[in-house]
Nucleic acid binder design. Structure first.
Lengths: 129, 129
DNA sequence: CCGCTGTCCTTGCGCATGCACTAATTGCAC
DNA sequence: GTGCAATTAGTGCATGCGCAAGGACAGCGG
């Protein structure tokens, strides 16, 4: 009975995570869509905006993979999209020419600043219950 | 400063949810894949297995939409796949011929019983930290 | 009956994602 | 130096998803 209860509790916690994740994710998408962004796009923008205090620059893409919940390939394409929209810039890494640097453009930084409050508002609404 | 802290805490919680969700989801997929199932497939099977104590039968699909984090269309196709694999059966609802009943087959029930411990093990591993 | 509105499921379509593969480059062993 | 494994990004392909539209049916008012 003890084991059963533990398993049931785990299951309940998991279902709860699933539920909160789905609803919040969906809401973020809905709020960001008018600005031409999806939840993943924002996630990358957000990492770039916060993890780039203008100094801690590494070869980026590889660096991003660890901080975002996307595969390398998905990230590659996502960055390509962001670049096409003029939100980030890619440049080859001089020290290691395999790598690619990714940096927010002015436009990207502005857009991030603009939508950040919207995302935070969603989090506040959804995570508080 | 108080507001900033609250926002940061929300952000941290959200990142944590994102992380746990991604890792657990991925692991469930990995464990279930050899059995021909994905995480969503299992979710549906699991709901069917637990929510069908042989009696509480409703027109199903509509009923499932509320319990699973998928759109109607995705669910429709997912059920079609499960049916193709012989794991569930669809039948028109007599009282309301718009509706469709979905029921686990013997094979579906067996497979669910077989993979359930695997999924629970993943939850135990990933959710405990 | 008739038609209208709403519900339930399915389908057409475009898109984002992951896997496996490739290309370019590095670093190391020899 | 030369070759070889490892690392880093990008690409072809298949798959699953959501949105919007469609088709079948129920329920209701006239």
């Amino acid at each position: 009975m003890a084991a059963k209860t533990a398993s049931a509790r785990l299951e309940e916690r998991w279902r709860n995570i699933l539920s909160v994740h789905a609803r919040t994710m969906c809401e973020i998408d809905r709020v960001l869509h008018p600005h031409g962004l999806g939840a993943s796009d924002f996630e990358v923008l957000d990492v770039l905006a916060s993890a780039t205090p203008e100094e801690e620059r590494q070869c980026r893409v590889q660096n991003l993979v660890g901080r975002v919940h996307l595969s390398q390939s998905a990230l590659s394409r996502l960055i390509a999209r962001l670049e096409k929209d003029g939100l980030v810039e890619r440049s080859v890494c001089a020290e290691d020419r395999r790598g690619v640097w990714v940096a927010l453009t002015r436009k990207g930084r502005d857009l991030h600043a603009q939508v950040l409050p919207l995302q935070r508002a969603v989090l506040a609404r959804m995570l508080d219950e």
